[in-house]
């Protein structure tokens, strides 16, 4: 299935085997049933960084199962105000 992925605040795809390597906004084919945790591993984003993941405008946890055409925004810890 295809996902629309957007990485923010310095995050980039760290997997050199993927065409999106080094990019921060891209479409990506993943196996059906991929979870947020599995997507993060596929993108080789450092596991030590706690992340915020927003799927179709909703915060989701690591075990959330993604669906076809989901938009997935991933952020490192950020703040402001």
């Amino acid at each position: 299935m295809k996902l629309e992925v957007a990485l923010f605040a310095g995050l980039k795809c760290g997997n050199p085997e993927l065409p999106c390597h080094g990019e921060r906004e891209f479409s990506l084919e993943v196996p059906d049933g991929t979870t947020v945790r599995e997507l993060r591993a596929l993108l080789a984003i450092a596991p030590a960084i706690p992340l915020l993941t927003i799927v179709n405008n909703h915060h989701e946890q690591e075990e959330w199962v993604l669906k076809e055409n989901d938009r997935v925004g991933i952020f490192p810890p950020i703040g402001g105000g």
């Binding site: 923010f8 490192p76 703040g79 105000g81």
Partner: peptide, 24 residues
């Protein structure tokens, strides 16, 4: 702390634009 030690120094408070937009 990642917010006060990394995010705010690197991008300032405007780092919030994208996350607020993504969250609707």
């Amino acid at each position: 702390h990642p917010v006060t030690g990394e995010g705010l120094p690197a991008y300032g408070t405007n780092v919030l634009t994208n996350v607020l937009n993504e969250a609707g």
